[in-house]
């Protein structure tokens, strides 16, 4: 038995990358598609994301952004500590809130905070930040293996998938368990390249070897210049547009640990 599953992280209104990722995942044979939340922020035209989710039957976890926009809260609960980060986050939040239709806000409000399923006895847990808190950042360089093993024990899961930090990573744990950050489709990964990432899981079971999980991080090219032009026409801050065009993060850097921060330009 064999199946493929695609997991998409934060979309951040980047419907162009989302379209490209869905097409790519289908071409690679993904049978089930999941989204781990944070549909809005950053990019243009928030309402363009929803038909893609619904028409493609993508099961979706509620991110902190979706909870905020859905409930029309005051801010995105992104948890930034630097006033400059909060300044840009506020512009983007206000834009997304104003431009998300009521029916889409209502839809987001009802999303689950986690999705669980089993495949041949392997227990999967899909969440946004961490299983215990939607807006918790689990960075690769500050999250110990012992801690992740505790999470898999405490939350009865063999494979935990999350997003939220904007950077994909994977840690293999004891007893063939895994923690995976699936990356995000919304913006590039602060490495000077313009593509974005999603995660493809290939699950296989046979009598000799039992169940195996193959994890592949997939880069997605999309028309980022078009996205940048659309962001300009919507008066979205130049700082965000620069990120789309250059692949370097320009804001929200204070929450990065040193290893992740050093990898970027700013």
């Amino acid at each position: 038995m064999r199946t493929k599953i695609a997991c998409f992280g934060g979309i951040y209104n980047n419907y162009l990358a989302f379209e490209a990722a869905i097409e790519d995942a289908r071409l690679r044979g993904a049978e089930q598609l999941y989204c781990l939340g944070d549909l809005g922020a950053f990019g243009p035209y928030p309402d363009r994301v929803f038909p893609l989710l619904i028409d493609n039957n993508i099961q979706t976890v509620q991110g902190n952004y979706d909870h905020s926009i859905g409930n029309a809260l005051e801010d995105c609960q992104c948890g930034y500590t630097d006033p400059r980060d909060n300044y840009f986050a506020a512009i983007s939040y206000e834009y997304t809130l104003e431009n998300t239709a009521t029916k889409n806000r209502d839809w987001m409000k009802e999303l689950p905070v986690e999705i669980r399923f089993s495949w041949q006895g392997k227990r999967f847990l899909l969440c946004h930040g961490s299983p215990r808190k939607t807006n918790e950042f689990l960075w690769e360089s500050t999250t110990s293996t012992a801690f992740l093993e505790r999470l898999t024990d405490d939350y009865d899961a063999d494979i935990i998938l999350a997003t939220h930090t904007g950077l994909h990573w994977h840690r293999e744990l004891k007893d063939d368990r895994h923690f995976i950050n699936v990356g995000v489709l919304g913006r590039p990964e602060n490495d000077g390249t313009t593509h974005v990432w999603y995660t493809l899981l290939t699950l296989q079971s046979d009598e000799q070897q039992g169940v195996s999980v193959d994890i592949e991080f997939v880069p997605v090219e999309y028309d980022h210049q078009r996205l940048a032009r659309e962001m300009e026409s919507e008066n979205i801050p130049q700082e965000f547009i620069e990120t789309i065009r250059t692949g370097w993060w320009t804001t929200c850097l204070e929450v990065l640990p040193i290893k992740e921060r050093r990898a970027g330009k700013y």
């Binding site: 609960q77 948890g79 950042f137 500050t142």
Partner: peptide
């Protein structure tokens, strides 16, 4: 640290 600050629920 800012990277590990507990976010309010």
């Amino acid at each position: 640290n800012p990277s590990s600050k507990k976010m309010e629920a």
